[in-house]
């Protein structure tokens, strides 16, 4: 038997030389570029928003939209965005989750069902404006008796349809990741399909489902294009009602950003727009944090600590 021949070079790193240096540098540039653009964006929003908050204080949140930046607030926009968020949580999340459960646990893998799943994936990539057209036709037009035209309800319905594919796809992936052993254990003691789904599959899939919910909510809160399509207004808006004219924070940002800063007041429209952007950012981050905390709670259960 011959001994294994091993020279001292054999166990040394091959990751030397210019090739790996270039690769490492390239990756670093990519990360730096990403972080830098994010930083510039945040810095710009903050510096622009601070004068607005200094001038208006909490009135910026609670005042209605005014004719001048110095007297304008975002309350109607906050109301609209809140309505959309609640609508998505109450409509799109249960509906999307139910669809995901059906497709993963109940539907047989027929050609038709595969076709349905592929198309749900495609729907997730459809531009938001197209959903705006859909909302205009169906929720503003056909369902006018219920929505009273371009109202918060119509907006919530439109954005629910928009985020439905995201919720279904992330829900399906979460459900698919549940180990077979857990399902079999449930069936093994005589549980029905629904009992296994309710008691074992859904709790185990909950972290993934929550991720989908947070993604969907963040997306719905940030969209402006479909709201433009269904006729959100951005002018003076004294009322905050579910069935009347409405606006939302992205609409205000979009509209205010386009207005010229008049010479007169202490702050311009661009400051108001940035401040509204900051509010939206804080809202989305708050939702994300809640999602992360809930996730951790469910994940802890999963590993049994």
């Amino acid at each position: 038997m011959t001994a294994v021949e091993l020279s001292s070079n054999d166990l040394r790193s091959r990751e030397k030389g210019t090739g790996s240096l270039v690769l490492g540098f390239g990756l670093l540039v990519a990360v730096t570029f990403t972080l830098l653009s994010l930083f510039v964006l945040l810095a710009r929003i903050f510096t622009q928003a601070i004068p607005a908050f200094r001038e208006r204080g909490s009135d910026f949140i609670t005042d209605t939209i005014g004719s001048e930046p110095g007297i304008s607030g975002i309350w109607p926009g906050l109301f609209g965005s809140f309505g959309i968020g609640v609508g998505v949580l109450l409509l799109a999340v249960p509906l999307g989750l139910a669809a995901a459960i059906y497709l993963e646990e109940y539907a047989k893998p027929t050609r038709f069902n595969r076709f349905v799943i592929v198309n749900i994936r495609n729907l997730a990539g459809v531009p938001a404006v197209i959903y705006g057209v859909l909302g205009l036709i169906i929720f503003v037009g056909w369902l006018k008796p219920i929505t009273n035209g371009g109202s918060v309800i119509a907006a919530a319905l439109t954005l629910s349809v928009l985020v439905l594919p995201v919720i279904i796809i992330t829900g399906m992936e979460a459900i698919r990741s549940v180990p077979t052993g857990i399902r079999e254990a449930g069936y093994g003691v005589g549980a029905t399909r629904w009992e296994v789904t309710r008691d074992h599959v859904l709790p185990y899939a909950m972290p993934g489902i929550l991720t989908g919910t947070v993604l969907a909510l963040s997306r719905a809160l940030g969209e402006a294009a479909p709201l433009i399509m269904i006729g959100a207004i951005t002018g003076l808006l004294p009322e905050t009602s579910l069935t009347g004219k409405f606006t939302a924070i992205p609409m205000l940002i979009y509209n205010w950003s386009g207005r010229p800063d008049s010479a007169g007041g202490a702050i311009g429209w661009s400051n108001s727009a940035a401040a509204a952007g900051l509010v939206l950012l804080v809202l989305v981050i708050a939702f994300n944090l809640t999602g992360v905390l809930l996730r951790q709670k469910f994940e802890k259960k999963r590993v049994g600590t």
Binding site: G181, E184, P203, G304
Partner: peptide, 20 residues
């Protein structure tokens, strides 16, 4: 079949307790 599995229990190859 659920009633069947209630009377005819099963223990699997890999221990599969519920995460409870």
């Amino acid at each position: 079949s659920n009633e069947v599995r209630r009377r005819i229990g099963m223990v699997f190859q890999k221990p599969n307790p519920f995460p409870k």
